[in-house]
């Protein structure tokens, strides 16, 4: 029998997917709806965090605008799938003819993808100026972009119903959709990292000047990383909208960005599975502690614990929980001798 580690990466990946869906299948048929709700939410945030990891973890661009792209994806997908008969009651615009006409209601998958594409296009326009900046200028400018998006979502009342938000969104998102998209996201990023594009991104993260001297055009790769990240952020937003069934502008604000950043840092920026680990920890903690918080009336407890975890990780384990740890270590052949 061949050893696990000597299997080609593709086979390992397929086995991993099979195992994941087997676990999900068992979970889906045995666990109650509340736990499944939490597991689905973990999946959605894993997609968001994994996509943030591409820019923040691998390319070294510390963007704080991720919630903005999620908002774009969420609103676009929602406007496409919203039921025709409810549109008038909710004061939402009917679709123009090039999007299928007023009688057309989009199926879920194409709507999600269009949401992702619009988010990616937004990233292209935002990225072109913002990615010229370095370090924290980029962070604050992308945060500013996110503020602009949420203000627009509040202001463009004809399109988004403003601060009231959109309710009664069809609930298409389920555990299968979410984890299928998570697998796609991880796969795309994994393939990307093992290509010349990914190597270039990692080189830019380590030293932009050195990368440039090797003939890498930093702007092109930064933009690529930003756009792909935004696409999957848009997907995560669309999944979220069709899961929560209601979206409001303020949901996609600082706190959503912060939570995704916390998941990324706790899990381990720049590791493939770290984001998922981080998302699972942060979301599970929230659902475990929510009853405590409400029962004792100490609102803010969960956030305090998040903040302490974030600071703790930064001080004592900056590589994150998954950083430098191979979860499949016990399958590795044992090293003999010294070192």
């Amino acid at each position: 029998m061949r050893r696990w580690t000597s299997l080609p990466g593709g086979v390992k990946f397929l086995l991993g997917i099979a195992a994941l869906f087997l676990v999900l299948f068992i979970a889906n048929s045995t666990l109650n709806r509340y736990v499944l709700h939490v597991i689905t939410l973990i999946g959605i945030y894993s997609v968001a965090t994994t996509s943030l990891n591409l820019t923040n973890g691998y390319t070294g661009l510390f963007s704080l605008g991720h919630a903005g792209f999620m908002a774009v994806g969420a609103y676009v997908a929602t406007l496409l799938t919203f039921p025709v008969r409810l549109r008038i009651a909710y004061n939402l615009p009917l679709l123009p003819s090039f999007l299928g006409g007023p009688e057309y209601q989009w199926p879920f998958l194409p709507a999600l993808i269009v949401g992702g594409i619009v988010a990616a296009i937004a990233a292209l326009f935002v990225g072109a100026p913002v990615l010229r900046l370095r370090g924290h200028y980029l962070s604050v400018a992308s945060l500013g972009f996110m503020v602009i998006i949420t203000t627009l979502a509040k202001g463009l009342k004809d399109l988004t119903r403003g601060a009231a938000g959109i309710q009664a969104i069809p609930r298409y998102t389920n555990i299968w959709w979410v984890y299928a998209w998570l697998v796609v996201t991880i796969y795309v990023i994994w393939r990307l990292l093992n290509s010349s594009y990914g190597r270039a991104m990692l080189a830019i993260r380590e030293s932009e000047t050195a990368a440039q001297s090797q003939g890498i055009h930093p702007m092109r790769y930064k933009l690529l990383s930003f756009v792909i990240g935004a696409f999957f952020a848009g997907i995560a937003g669309g999944l979220y909208a069709h899961f929560a069934r209601s979206i409001r502008p303020y949901e996609f604000s600082f706190y959503m960005t912060f939570h995704i950043v916390i998941m990324l840092i706790i899990g381990g920026a720049g590791t493939l599975l770290g984001p998922t680990v981080g998302a699972a920890i942060v979301i599970a903690l929230k659902y475990v502690l929510k009853p405590v918080e409400e029962g004792l009336g100490i609102y803010g407890l969960v956030e305090i614990i998040y903040a302490l975890m974030l600071i703790g990780v930064m001080l004592w384990r900056p590589e994150g929980i998954a950083g430098g740890v191979n979860p499949l270590k016990f399958l590795m052949p044992k090293r003999k001798g010294g070192s």
Binding site: V261, L310, I311, M314
Partner: peptide
């Protein structure tokens, strides 16, 4: 990142 964490800590 740490200053973000400290902000969230103080606010909450």
């Amino acid at each position: 990142i740490t200053s973000l964490g400290i902000y969230i800590l103080l606010e909450n």
